[in-house]
Design a protein around this nucleic acid. Structure first.
Length: 290
DNA sequence: GTACAGGCAGTAT
DNA sequence: ATACTGCCTGTA
C-alpha cells in the first residue's frame, strides 16, 4: 500500500477507468477493483491522495496502468493547438489513456463489436468466471482474465454460453492465434504502428476499429485513432471540414483508413488522447452512465 | 412485435 | 472499390 501524490491533483483514476477503455472495474464499499490480466488492481481515495494496491504486484502498478510516466503537460500542450480539444482538456483534466493487459484488451474489444457496455461487461465477467482463476481479495471473490490457451481450449458452445453469440468464433480464432499461432502481443509494443496494426488485423474478427483500440489502449501506440459510431458523430460535429461523411453513417474500410489517417496527421503523435477526450465528452453529453 | 446497440466478414455488383 | 447482408443477445 502506498499513497502517490506526485502526479498532481488533476489526475482522476475514476474518470479514466470509466471512459470506455476498460470494462472489468467495479466499486465495492468505496474502493475500486479492476481485473487486468492475471492481476486484481485496487484503489481507494483517502484524504491526502489515492491509495493503490494490487493482488500480484508488490510495487506500484499505477504508473504503468494509468500511463503516469507520459509527459501529460506535453500531451496537453501539443493537443491544445486544436480549439476543440483545448476546451475538453480543461473540462476533463483528470482523463488519462490506460496501458492495459494486451490480451485482455484484445478479447474485450472483440466482444465489444456491435453491442453495448452492459453486454460487454456481462460477456467478459462470464468468461472470467468460467475460464479464469479464482482469487480471494479482501475476503471477496474475483476471477482473473482467462489466458489465450484457456479460451482456445473452450468449445464454441461453451463460449456462446457466456453470451458471446456470433463473437464466440472470433474469440476462439484470436485465442488460437495467440496460443498456437505464435502471435505475441507484448512484442508489438516495440513495433511500429503499421507493423503492429497489420499483425492484429490478421486475426479473424479484428477489423480497423478494434485493431486501433488494441494499439491505443494496450500497445503504446498513442497516435492510433479508433473511429466508432460515436467518434464519427463527434468528427461530423467538430471536424466536418476534415472529412465528408455524414452523422451516424457507417464507414467503409477505405473511408475509415482515410479519415483515421487524416486525424492522425492533424493531431500528431498524441492523436489517441484527442480521440479519448472526444469520446468521453460525447458520451457524457449523451448522458450515458456506465 | 420491432428497433437497436461502441463491427465484422462474406458475397455480389 | 463499394453496397448489401446476416449475425447473438438483451433491453426499451
Amino acid at each position: 500500500m502506498q499513497v502517490d501524490e506526485s502526479v498532481g491533483l488533476d489526475f482522476d483514476p475514476v474518470t479514466s477507468i470509466n471512459s470506455g477503455q476498460t470494462f472489468l472495474w467495479e466499486r465495492i464499499d468505496g474502493a475500486w477493483y479492476g481485473i487486468n490480466g492475471q492481476d486484481v488492481l485496487k484503489f481507494v481515495a483517502k484524504s491526502g491522495g489515492v491509495e493503490y494496491s494490487s493482488y500480484l504486484e508488490h510495487g506500484s502498478w499505477e504508473r504503468n496502468f494509468f500511463r503516469l510516466d507520459d509527459d501529460i503537460r506535453r500531451v496537453h500542450a501539443t493537443l491544445a493547438c486544436d480549439e476543440t480539444i483545448a476546451t475538453l482538456i480543461t473540462k476533463y483534466p483528470g482523463l488519462r489513456l490506460l496501458r492495459q493487459d494486451p490480451e485482455q484488451c484484445l478479447f474485450s474489444f472483440v466482444c465489444a463489436s456491435n453491442t453495448n457496455i452492459p453486454m460487454i461487461r456481462r460477456m467478459l465477467y462470464n468468461l472470467a468466471r468460467k475460464f479464469g482463476d479464482r482469487i480471494i481479495c479482501d475476503q471477496r471473490e474475483f476471477f482473473t482474465f482467462p489466458s489465450a490457451s484457456a479460451l482456445n481450449s473452450a468449445s464454441l458452445t461453451e463460449l456462446r454460453s457466456c453470451g458471446l453469440g456470433y463473437r464466440a468464433r472470433a474469440v476462439k480464432a484470436a485465442a488460437k492465434a495467440i496460443a498456437e499461432g505464435g502471435l505475441n502481443l507484448q512484442d508489438l509494443r516495440n513495433a511500429e504502428f503499421q507493423e503492429a496494426k497489420d499483425q492484429v488485423l490478421q486475426i479473424y474478427g479484428v477489423g480497423n476499429k478494434i485493431a486501433d483500440c488494441i494499439l491505443l489502449f494496450s500497445l503504446d501506440k498513442l497516435d492510433a485513432f479508433p473511429i466508432d459510431l460515436w467518434i464519427a458523430r463527434a468528427l461530423s460535429t467538430h471536424y466536418s471540414a476534415l472529412h465528408d461523411c455524414r452523422i451516424g453513417e457507417k464507414l467503409t474500410p477505405r473511408q475509415y483508413e482515410s479519415i483515421s489517417e487524416k486525424m492522425r496527421r492533424h493531431f500528431g503523435k498524441y492523436a489517441g488522447y484527442a480521440q479519448q477526450y472526444l469520446f468521453y465528452d460525447i458520451r457524457q453529453q449523451a448522458q450515458r452512465h456506465w
